[in-house]
Simulated scan of single mutants.
Amino acid sequence: MVPLDKTLHQLAWKTNSIFFVFDPSENNFHYLSDNASVSFEIDVALIMKDPAVLLDRIFADDRVRVLEEFSHIGTKDCIEADFRLLFTPNQPVKWLHIKACMLQGEPALQGCIVGFAEDITSRKEIEMYLTNTHAQKDVALQILGHDIRSPIGTISAASSLLERSVCHEDLKNIEPLFRIISDTCQNALNLINDVLQSVYWDAQNTVKKKRRIDLVDMVENQLHAYRLLHQDQKDFKLFSSTRHVYIRSDQVRLQLILENLLSNAYKFTKRNGTIAVDLQEKEGKVQIAVKDDGIGIPDRLKPMIFQKFTNARREGMQGEKPTGLGLHIVKTMVEQLNGHIWFESGEERGTTFFVELPKKGI
């Protein structure tokens, strides 16, 4: 080795970087530090013989981007790119950062590409962790901003009715109103706790608290609250294939799914309209249908209905302001419970949302 080779050899191993000088006109390396065999898991002698084997190690999507960068190397001072290396399916992804330029003014190396590549796997993992944490924080704030409104509205309405009942000495309504306020507060606290967990854990991996739930009782309790709080405005009905429909699942998520679907049906159903929930047991599954005879969904809005901050959002029949988050949250939570959601709707013919969940749950 010449002294320069020895210097680059030491620098490469101490900095965990790969140094190279590549001649594109001859398609070969004038120099390649031998630690390339560690990063690419290919013998350096094989790389020197056939440089194209390096491209086979790069993820297909990244390969296109890296080649695109190198196509501009003669028009830029230098080019940079991050890319992933492809190994066996069980091996973790490895990230490299490459920076290179074209040599000018050296007759022996005119037109050669000189540069280095460094292993940035640890840095990328930190970046992805921070990005994911930031995204989860945003999701948490969006869910809280959307779904805390509903229980606060319920508590406010129940408090107004309670005050009216006390003034008129209508004592028979006081106890159920107190129960609604208490249950709603507890559900809201459960929601806050569950969502705050998702700030620190990926939403798909957040611990789901499985328990045996009677859907008939859960839906009846929610419909009872609507009937009591919105007297003489709409007709709420419950149909079920059996007296009890049991499912093993996450209670908080199920309540949020039902509350959002009922709230959505309520907003888009005219006064004196009908909202019905139908529970059907199937082989290994439970199907929940929330049906209204409201204004329906126009065809042009249907493809966007589950999108976050969707352009399909509309004001409710009483001027309720939409956020464009409700049905996106419902779809996310249904999928977290290994379920499936779809809908049928026609303008002025109402809408039915169907949720199918496994009986044994998550």
Results as ranks from 00 to 15, higher is better:
F87I: 01
D50A: 12
L162H: 03
V64Q: 15
T88V: 05
T131N: 13
I113C: 03
I181E: 06
A140I: 06
K94C: 00
V93F: 01
A81H: 02
N173L: 07
K137W: 03
A188G: 13
E127N: 12
F116T: 04
A157Q: 14
I113E: 04
L189R: 03
K137V: 02
H168K: 14
N132Y: 02
I180V: 14
R123S: 03
T133C: 05
D183V: 05
I152W: 14
I120Q: 04
E80N: 07
V139A: 11
D82N: 09
N132P: 01
A117R: 05
I98S: 04
V139I: 11
M128P: 00
L103D: 06
H97A: 04
L189Y: 08
L162M: 13
I148G: 09
N173V: 08
G145L: 11
E125T: 02
K99Y: 00
R179P: 05
A188I: 11
I126E: 07
I181R: 01
I73R: 04
R164L: 09
V114C: 13
R123G: 01
P51W: 08
L109D: 08
I152A: 15
D119Q: 00
A157G: 03
R123M: 06
C185S: 14
K172I: 09
S122M: 09
R179A: 06
S182R: 15
M128N: 11
I148V: 13
D138R: 03
L109Y: 09
L67I: 14
N173H: 04
T88L: 08
K137L: 14
I174W: 05
L96W: 00
D138H: 01
D56M: 09
F178E: 12
I174V: 15
R179N: 11
L54A: 02
G145V: 11
F83D: 01
H134F: 10
L86Y: 10
L162Y: 09
Y129R: 12
D82I: 00
T121R: 01
A100L: 03
G74D: 11
I180R: 02
L171D: 11
L189F: 07
I192R: 07
D62R: 03
P107I: 08
A157H: 09
Q136Y: 07
G105A: 05
V93C: 06
G115C: 08
K99I: 00
Q136I: 00
T133D: 06
I152P: 13
P89T: 04
H134N: 11
G74H: 09
K137M: 10
A135C: 08
G111P: 03
R123V: 04
S182Q: 15
C185R: 13
V53K: 10
H134M: 13
I148P: 08
R63N: 13
A188V: 06
P92L: 12
E68L: 14
L96S: 04
G115I: 05
K124D: 00
